[in-house]
Simulated assay, not measured.
Amino acid sequence: MSEELEKERSRVTAADEKIVPLLLERMEAVAEIGWIKQREGLGVKDVGRERKVLDRVGELAGEENAEYVQEIYREIMNQACRFQERQKGEGK
């Protein structure tokens, strides 16, 4: 493996070490939001909120990368909904 490839892979690893804790922090907030939605009798999915998130992250990513970042966030939000659905059966 080339030194250049190894260097770039190290950058990815370093980014992952920052991303995972942030994803865990996001999931903690998602859990709390799920409990609040349950108490307030709201559904898990909020299409309007999802659209706002996708628009915001698209702007943050810039025109060149918006499509890719938005697709990643679609999956993040799908998993958040899945998590909240599972949470419904657990009660708090």
Rank of each mutant, 00 (worst) to 15 (best):
K92P: 15
L23R: 04
R9N: 14
G62E: 07
A61F: 02
E25Q: 00
W35P: 06
Y73W: 13
W35L: 13
R74H: 04
Y68G: 08
V53D: 01
I72W: 04
A14V: 07
E32G: 07
C81V: 13
C81G: 11
A14L: 15
Y68C: 13
E50R: 15
E50K: 12
E3T: 14
K45T: 07
A31R: 00
Q79W: 11
Q70H: 01
Q38W: 05
Q84R: 02
D46S: 02
K92M: 14
Q87I: 12
E25L: 04
K45L: 00
G91D: 04
D46N: 14
L60S: 08
E40K: 02
A29V: 05
L60P: 02
Q38T: 07
K45N: 09
Q70T: 05
G58M: 06
D16P: 02
E32T: 07
R74T: 05
Q79C: 05
I36W: 12
S2I: 10
R11D: 10
V12L: 10
N78E: 12
R86K: 14
G41P: 03
N65C: 07
N65F: 14
M1Q: 09
E32P: 00
Y68E: 10
I19T: 04
Q79D: 11
K52L: 15
A80I: 04
Q70M: 11
V47E: 10
I19F: 03
G89Q: 01
K92D: 12
E64Q: 12
P21A: 07
G62Y: 01
A66L: 07
R49P: 05
M27C: 02
A66E: 05
E4V: 13
V47L: 12
G62T: 02
K88L: 12
L54Y: 05
S10E: 15
K52Y: 06
E90G: 03
V53R: 08
G91Y: 01
E8A: 11
R9D: 12
E8Q: 15
E8H: 14
G43A: 10
A15E: 08
R39K: 11
G89A: 09
A66I: 03
A31I: 06
K45G: 04
I72R: 10
R82H: 04
E28I: 03
V57R: 08
T13H: 06
I19V: 09
A31Q: 07
P21W: 02
